[in-house]
Each structure stands twice: as C-alpha cells, then as structure tokens.
Design a binder for these strands. Structure first.
Length: 806
DNA sequence: AGCACGCCGACT
DNA sequence: GTCGGCGTGCTC
C-alpha cells in the first residue's frame, strides 16, 4: 500500500508549479487524493492538496503533519477542472485548486519561534554577553514560553526583527509556525442585554451623539431580545462596538452551536405555474439529458420577459428529483435579488446563497452543507462555480454574456468556460441564458457546440416596447441643445401624468473621452484599426490604443468640415438637473457609483423606486439590470452610443446588450411599454438592431465585422502585460519579449499586435505595456509559452481570452 | 510567497 | 575588517 502523497502547496504564486512528495504517517493512513493536509515546507508550515498517491519511496521525504478535514475536500471532478483551468489560463495548479477553498486557504498561519532541539545555552550566554539587554529579553521570552509568536515578540522590543534574524543565524532559535484551522466552528455569537430595558434606554440617551453604532446596537437590543451575528452585520455593528458595550457590562455575549444558514425560508409556494409553449419546448429538450446524466450545453436565448427563470427552476427541480445538485450563477448578487427570491420560493432550504459578505466560516458551513448533500443548490456569483458539490447535475449561467463572469485577477478564468469543462467532467447539463448572448456563444451555438433554444415571445404575449430613435444630430441642427430631446420629454410628461414610472439610463462609462462631431456624428477613428481615438492630456494628442499611432486634433471635422468638434461627456448630475427643471414636481432618484457606494444601497434604491416612492429612476447601466417593476412603462436612453465609441472591439456588442436590457425594463406588466433612444449614430447596426429588438440582425453585422478583422470567435486573443517601475525599462522589456514571442511562435498560426502602452499605462507607479497575440491555435501558443516558462516571470501577466484588450 | 545564501558599499 | 543592501534559487 502506498504511503507517499503528491501534494500541491497552497501558496499563491505561479512560480511553484509542481507537486511535492510527502510521507503519510501511520496515524493519518486515511489520507487520499483530494484531502487537504498540513505539510512542512522549507521552514514553514503550509496547506497542501493531495492530488495523487505514489508508490515509490525516495529518501529524505518530510511527513504530513496533519489533516484539515476528516474527508476529501476535492473530488476528482474538481481536481480535473483545476488542472484544465491551470493549463488553459496559464496559472499554477495551486492557484487553480485554491479557488475551491473558502477564503482561499483552510489555515491561518502565525509566524512563531522556539528553541532548537539541541539548544546550546552556554553558547547562547557567550553570544549574548556583548549584546544589548533587549537581546536577552527576547531570547529568554522564547525559551521560557517554549514557543512565541512574532506578534508577542514585537511588543518586547523595537528591534525584534533584527534580533530574531541574528538568533536564527546563530541557530539559537528556529521557526515554528503556529497554525490555526479556519472556518471550522459552527458557532454563532448572540448578544443580549445585560441590564433592563429602561436602563438601556437611559444609557442610550446619555451616549454622546457621535457614538452612532453603540446607540444603534442598544436600540436594536431594546426592540429585540437578542441579536445574532447576521443581524448585527445587517445593522453595521462591528465587533469593537460589541466589545465596548460588553466591557461596560451593558450587554452579554454568548456563543452557541448553530448551523449557519442565512436563508431559512421554507418551501411553501408550490403554486402550479402554467408554462408557455416555448418554455415547455425548451424543457422538453433539456430534461431528457438531465435524466441521461449526459453532458450537454444549451443556449437559452430568450427575450427579456420571456420567462427564462422558470425554465431554470424547472430544470433544477428535475435535477433535484434525481438527487443531483445544481450550481446557479448570476452576474452580480446585489443586482439579482429577484431571481434569488424566485429560487428561494421554489426550493427553500435546499438552497445555499453565496454572498460576498459571508464570512469564511459561513462560507465553509454553506459548502459543507453542499458536500454532505444537506443542500442541493448553490446560487451565487462566479465563485460559486467552485462549490464542492459531489453530485453535479446541472450548471446554470444566467445572463451569460455579462463580463463579470471573467475574473480580472489571476487566475483570469471565465466562468462560462470553466462551467462547461466542469459539467463535461461530471456528465452534467449546462444552460447558458441570455437575451443578448455573447457573440462567441451564439456563434458556437450555430456551429453545434450548444443546442440553441430560442424564446421569442414575452409571457402572456406582452408586446415588446415601442422604440423611438431620436437623431441628436437633427436636434442640434434644429438648435435644440438640451440633453433631453422633445420626444423624450413628451414621453416622460405622459408617463408622469398617467402615474406610471420611468427609467432613464445615462450610459457613461470610464473617463476616456471620445471625440465627436456634433454636426454629422462622425467619431474620430484610427485609420488602421477601426477603433475610436482617445484624447490624451499629456501632449494634447489623440491616440489609438491598438497601434500606438498619434494624431493631432483637427480644427474641423474631417467628414463634413464642421467646427463643432467636441470631447463628449455628460454626467448623471447634469441630467438630474435638467429633469428637475423640466418636471419640478416629479420625484427623481439617482443610482450610480456615487449613490450606491454604501452597502445594500442598490436594494434600497430599487425597492424605494419599486414601491412608488419615486417617479423616475435615473442612473448608469445598473438601472438596466435585473429589476422587473410592472409600473415602469417608459425607458429613456440619453446617449445610446456612448459605449459604441469606446476603443474596444466589443463596443458594438456592449451597446447592443445594454440597449436591449434597458428597453426590456419597459412594459413588464399589463401596460404597454415604450422607449426613447437618443443617439448620434442612428444608422449604426447596434442601435438599429437594438431599437428593433432584433438579435439576429445585430449578430449578422457583428459576425461579419469580427470575421473581417480576425477577432474572436474567429481567433483567440491572449494579452500579455509587461510591468516595470521604470518607463524605459518596461518598453525595452516589452520589445524584447515581443521579438522573443515572434521567434517562438514561428510556425504557429498567430500574429502579434504591439507592444503598446496599456490604456491606464501607469498604476501605482508601475508602468504597463501590452502585447496581444491573435491566434487560431491557442493550445499550441499556450504550449510554446509554457515551454519558455513565461508564467514564472514575475513582471509578466498573461490573460487568456481577455475581456479588456487594452 | 518566504526565506536562506551570497556577493558588493558605508560604518564601528 | 563587519553590517546589511537586495539579487538568485529552493522549498518534498
């Protein structure tokens, strides 16, 4: 029997990318593939993941110190998914595996020191003789305690680090990490009043005005007998506040063994829902494959309001009936409370909701419930994809085109791609749902990779909203300069008169200004790249971020000769001002980065709007997502083409998706909806197709453009970012790398674009230069890059299938 | 990632 | 002559 384990250490770096062998000691004979273990590594103790057992027995192996669980954390499906992820996205296996661990690590390590096994006290005395007294203070503390943590030791002297280094060199002490397992305790803290309510009320009044948190806590305790951790968090009460009041004897804290489950609602509403013909058709295709335990992916292409969620629910119900588990991914938990509520109504306690605000302990508990089969459904943002479900039957990705599915830190994975692999390995079904599928996904569906399931009709045959496109160039020609055009103004007036509500979208993203002629709508573009030019304050020039070419700013429009060339940009505040002037009695609420920075602000704003406290909801793209408010009958889009002018090959796709989504907010209830889109590019296919609710039309134009310019889905992109804290060095390194790449990629079907400075070319004093590789043979490119060990270079970031090519 | 080993400048 | 800078290289 084998007693050697191949272990991947959980250290967040790309440079250690190989397993290490450890002896499994007799008392840990149960250790097997998938177990999390504690191993000695150098002079540290680290978490490791057993990925294989080995038979041979080389000399000089260290021994596994401990196990973190009493079971295997990873199943083979999870390990294989991680292996694929590390190969495809060029990260180490350790980086990929730790995605499956709540809080990225199962242990918390504290640096600590102890006397060596053969301590030479006489030698120590000699060495200490001509050293300051603090040296002996530190050493005797360690010797007397047996072992001391760094945190304790730094309190003893200002020079603790120097002193410790000295002792380590002279072998008077050795490292001895203190390791705590994380997320093990299934306990929750409960806070009670320790005094009578009257006393508490009096104390609350006497507290200084500034002690807001203390007042809040006392107030809540007077109303409720006790408060749990979750309730305290909702009230924004921090542990320090609790400690403060506890130290004054006003409250008591106790810890109980409660199994954490934030969502405790029960499965009640078993109301029979009549499916539409299209929903039924989709489910007829999906359900047999769930039963057959076969891998298959579906693209559920349904217009807004066509009832995709019900299809998800029924498909998940089927998987649950067969006792298989489900992963449901949503783009952003804060903006998708409606879909979560629907699932909770249908499945109650069987659901685990992965909230970004969950503590590591809560996350651990939630995942444990899934591992044990006590819960069958996990719903969450992209990280929920790594939930340790052992009996995976279905993965659902709602709004699959959303860019939040791409992780922007290493490992830079895309949840859709990983989901497809994980499901394939598990023999599970994938449903990709969207009203505006990613061009890549739709293309794959047309080529048979996914089964296309269209849903063209809204529930109850509610018509799609009527769209009016307003040509803002004409507005200017008529000398109307208001950001709110007459048609929009008229629609809003009628909506308000009917006591209905309106949503206004001002899609202003980023800071880079694009340059536009207000007379003809012409946007200045690079002549080589078909990409909008970006205004740079440094040097006062226009630049193309793709090819680095600089252009001077023309005085007149090169298209029509007009002098109305402007750097475009209108903020939400300006629009709010105009609206207030036009409709002084209307109640307007703004939702954008500025107003939603506080926790749960989204929900508060949306529910205030939903319950009718406001007439107009004005904001950035977030107003276009997720909500379904029946009294909203009008949607206004101030500037439908803002995203169009971003220097990005996906600009049209982003614009079309946003227009469709925003328009989809109108007329969800019984009343018909309408939309006004203001634009300087009324003839652009993204605007036209958006106004016509016609995805096919958009797709046809877009795919032609992608094919012509060799963009995805016809090629894969690979972005390589070179970083350095010196501008000359970063360019030199990038140029060197580019020629190195050109060499190693000879014979592979690929082309190299750049080097060109990143759009934000300096972050925190680090300069960044990008190189793009376009290829039809990604596996081969990846292979070549692995051959030259590019991933171990610390100054290089590799992003496979980047979302942001700049 | 840490941490050790190792080779060059400013100090008792 | 020593302390200590941070440049490679290793960790079963």
């Amino acid at each position: 029997m084998s007693n050697i384990a191949q272990v991947i250490v959980n250290i967040p770096t790309r440079s250690i990318d190989k397993p290490f062998s450890y002896l499994i000691p007799p008392h840990l004979q149960g250790v097997d593939v998938g177990w999390r273990v504690l191993v000695p590594f150098g002079n540290r103790k680290v978490e490791g993941f057993v990925i294989a057992l080995a038979a041979e027995r080389p000399e000089g192996l260290k021994t596994i110190l401990d196990v973190l669980d009493t079971y295997a954390w990873f199943n083979t499906n999870m390990i294989e998914t991680a292996k694929w992820l590390s190969t495809y996205y060029l990260c180490s296996l350790g980086e990929a595996l730790r995605l499956f661990v709540p809080g990225q690590s199962g242990i918390r390590t504290q640096k600590a020191y102890k006397a060596p096994d053969e301590a030479d006290f006489e030698q120590a005395a000699v060495i200490l003789e001509n050293k300051p007294v603090e040296y002996s203070t530190v050493l005797s503390y360690i010797y007397n305690q047996g072992s001391a943590t760094l945190t304790e030791l730094v309190k003893l002297s200002e020079n603790t680090n120097t002193i410790l280094k000295f002792f380590l060199q002279h072998k008077l002490i050795v490292h001895s990490d203190t390791v705590n397992k994380r997320g093990k305790s299934n306990t929750t803290t409960i806070v009670n009043l320790a005094v009578g309510r009257e006393v508490a009320a009096l104390t609350e009044q006497q507290l200084p005005k500034t002690c807001l948190a203390q007042r809040r806590l006392l107030h809540a305790l007077i109303d409720n007998n006790e408060l749990t951790t979750a309730q305290l968090r909702d009230l924004n009460i921090t542990p320090s506040t609790i400690k403060k009041l506890a130290s004054q004897g006003l409250i008591t804290i106790r810890t109980t063994q409660v199994f954490r489950n934030s969502y405790d609602t029960l499965c009640k509403s078993a109301t029979k829902i009549t499916l539409t013909e299209e929903q039924e058709h989709a489910l007829k295709a999906i359900i047999p494959l769930i039963c057959a335990q076969a891998h298959k992916s579906f693209l559920l292409h349904g217009v807004t309001g066509s009832g995709k969620t019900q299809v998800y629910i029924n498909a998940v119900a089927e998987a649950r009936r067969l006792n298989r588990q489900a992963i449901v991914l949503v783009p952003e938990i804060a903006l998708t409370s409606q879909i979560i509520a629907r699932f909770q109504a249908a499945f109650g306690n069987d659901i685990v909701v992965m909230h970004s605000k969950l503590s590591v302990g809560e996350r651990h508990d939630a995942w444990r419930r899934l591992q044990l089969g006590q819960a069958g459904i996990v719903i969450g943002a992209r990280s929920a994809l790594f939930a340790p479900v052992n009996n995976l039957g279905i993965i659902i990705i709602d709004e699959e085109h959303e860019f939040t599915y791409k992780q922007e830190e290493s490992p830079r994975y895309h949840a859709r791609e990983v989901a497809l692999i994980r499901a394939k390995l598990a023999g599970a079904v994938v449903i990709l749902g969207s009203a505006t599928p990613a061009v890549e996904t739709y293309y794959q569906a047309l080529n048979g990779k996914h089964t296309l399931l269209p849903m063209r009709k809204r529930i109850d045959n509610v018509p799609m909203p009527a769209v009016t496109v307003v040509d803002m160039r004409q507005e200017l020609a008529q000398r109307r300069r208001s950001v709110i055009s007459p048609p929009l103004q008229e629609m809003l007036a009628e909506t308000l008169a009917n006591k209905e509500q309106a949503v206004i979208l001002l899609n202003r993203r980023g800071y880079s200004t694009f340059v536009l002629c207000r007379e003809c709508g012409h946007v200045l573009k690079c002549r080589h790249c078909d990409i909008s030019l970006v205004y740079h304050t440094s040097g006062n020039t226009l630049r193309c971020h793709y090819c680095q070419e600089r252009h001077s700013i023309p005085d007149t429009c090169p298209e029509c000769g007009s002098r109305y060339i402007r750097y475009f940009g209108t903020g939400t505040q300006k629009v709010e001002e105009s609206l207030n002037l036009l409709f002084p009695t209307a109640k307007i609420i703004r939702m954008d980065q500025d107003t939603t920075s506080r926790k749960m602000a989204h929900d508060k704003i949306l529910s205030a709007f939903a319950n009718g406290s406001y007439d107009i909801l004005l904001g950035t793209q977030m107003v276009a997502k997720g909500h379904d408010i029946s009294n909203v009958t009008a949607v206004g889009i101030i500037s439908a083409d803002t995203a169009l002018n971003l220097p990005d090959f996906r600009a049209a796709e982003k614009t079309f998706a946003l227009l469709t989504q925003a328009a989809g907010r109108a007329g969800r209830g019984a009343k018909a909806g309408r939309v006004v889109m203001q634009t300087y590019n009324p003839e652009h296919y993204a605007v036209q197709a958006g106004a016509a609710h016609n995805y096919q039309e958009f797709f046809e134009s877009e795919i032609t453009f992608r094919r012509q310019l060799n963009y995805p889905p016809f090629t894969h992109l690979l972005k390589i970012t070179v970083q350095a804290n010196d501008e000359t060095i970063v360019h030199r390194n990038a140029n060197l790398l580019a020629s190195e790449l050109a060499q190693i990629l000879t014979g592979v079907d690929s082309s190299i674009v750049g080097p060109f400075p990143a759009s934000i070319n300096k972050i925190k004093d680090i300069f960044r230069v990008n190189i793009l590789i376009k290829t039809t043979d990604l596996p081969n490119v990846t292979l070549k890059l692995t051959d030259v060990d590019i991933i171990s270079r610390k100054d290089i970031i590799v992003d496979v299938d980047p979302i942001n090519v700049l």
